[in-house]
């Protein structure tokens, strides 16, 4: 059988070879230069460019129409509204530039397709035009830079709320631990040399401030409308805490403490009622139903967003935003470091 395949393949090669020979012979005999572009080629490809433009633009608009509800829902954090406003302004600008500049390109590519009876115009440059397309982008960019930096400084500013809630997110391959400061509202210092099964995040057992620190896994809770200062640590390699619904992200770097702060303004329960979110979740549940899986409800997540190994794609933790009272009740049920260590 294998022999037959080989034989068939060899015969095919010979046949193709003969076919090409005939083609080459006739090409050389007729002496026509196949590489030359004729007016018909120019017309064909010129039209192709115009057609492509329409198809491309239509494809883009179709995607916007079909996917807009899948993009991140309204921001669940206060500063996120600024980011979204700026993002939308930027999208509007770049989409406009995308249409106009690509439009000119494809339109000219069609309009000026070559013909034998025409000669191109000898145009070297045009100072007015060049000034125009240097200064217009420069002015547009000035606005982008000014607003971008204004918001950047506001978001990264260090003292918004004099009395924020402190939470530490601790990353390791491949899970997250959240740490609350406990009753004394102070984190104890850490020491990676002391890491072991009873001390998973490497707290210094000699520091009594650590004793009331609360450590939680799998999910952690946030009170709504309260400024939260996150600090981030990593045990092994660089991870990144990405909380897309809160428009928050920060790398977790071993040997360093990084931070980010935001104020959640929409509880999980409220976000689940958002029509945008509901449409998305309904779609997901329809897919899950087909596969015979249970329906899900919307949840905020922290995802790992820096390549960290085999289970990188699965390194996540649930975030629950709730009223201050619910949050306090939840927190009271969690174990302190001391309780964990004594086990």
């Amino acid at each position: 059988m294998t022999l037959l395949y080989i034989l068939a393949f060899v015969l095919l090669c010979i046949a193709l070879n003969q076919l090409f020979r005939v083609f080459e012979l006739s090409r050389d005999l007729r002496g026509e230069q196949l590489y030359k572009t004729h007016d018909s080629d120019n017309r064909f490809n010129g039209r192709g460019m115009l057609l492509f433009m329409f198809a491309f633009f239509a494809f883009f608009l179709w995607q916007i129409d079909s996917y807009y509800y899948r993009i991140l829902p309204k921001s669940a954090s206060e500063h996120g509204y600024k980011i979204d406003a700026l993002l939308n302004a930027n999208y509007a600008l770049v989409v406009l530039v995308f249409f106009v500049v690509n439009g000119f390109l494809f339109f000219f590519a069609w309009k000026y397709h070559g013909t034998k009876d025409r000669k191109a115009e000898y145009i070297l440059h045009n100072n007015k035009l060049e000034m125009l397309w240097t200064t217009v982008p420069a002015i547009a960019l000035a606005f982008i830079i000014i607003f971008g930096l204004k918001y950047w400084n506001e978001i990264m500013k260090r003292n918004n709320d004099p009395n924020p809630l402190k939470i530490e997110l601790y990353a390791k391959q491949f899970d997250w631990t959240a740490r609350y400061a406990g009753k004394d509202d102070q984190f104890g210092i850490d020491d990676y040399m002391q890491i072991n099964g009873g001390n998973p995040v490497g707290l210094d057992t000699n520091d009594i401030r650590c004793n009331d620190d609360i450590l939680v896994k799998n999910e952690f809770h946030l009170p709504v409308n309260k400024e939260i200062v996150f600090s981030f640590r990593s045990r092994d390699i660089i991870h990144s805490a990405f909380m897309p619904h809160f428009r928050a992200q920060m790398n977790c770097v071993p040997g360093q403490i990084t931070s980010f702060r935001f104020k959640p303004v929409i509880t999980t329960a409220e976000m689940r009622k958002d029509p945008h979110v509901q449409r998305n979740i309904n779609e997901i549940n329809a897919i899950r139903a087909k596969k015979g899986e249970d329906p899900i409800e919307f949840d905020y997540l922290v995802l790992c967003n820096k390549i960290c190994g085999a289970s990188h794609y699965n390194m996540q933790m649930k975030i629950v935003v709730e009223s201050e009272a619910d949050y306090n009740a939840w927190l009271a049920k969690q174990k302190t470091f001391k309780a964990i260590a004594q086990k």
């Binding site: 080629d41 120019n42 500049v101 590519a109 070559g114 191109a120 115009e121 145009i123 045009n126």
Partner: peptide, 20 residues
């Protein structure tokens, strides 16, 4: 970068484009 893109486009303008 914008200058370059515009210069390419203006090179096409009033040209006699040979589609190789």
């Amino acid at each position: 970068s914008a200058v370059k893109a515009f210069n390419y486009i203006t090179t096409l303008w009033k040209g006699n484009i040979q589609y190789t």
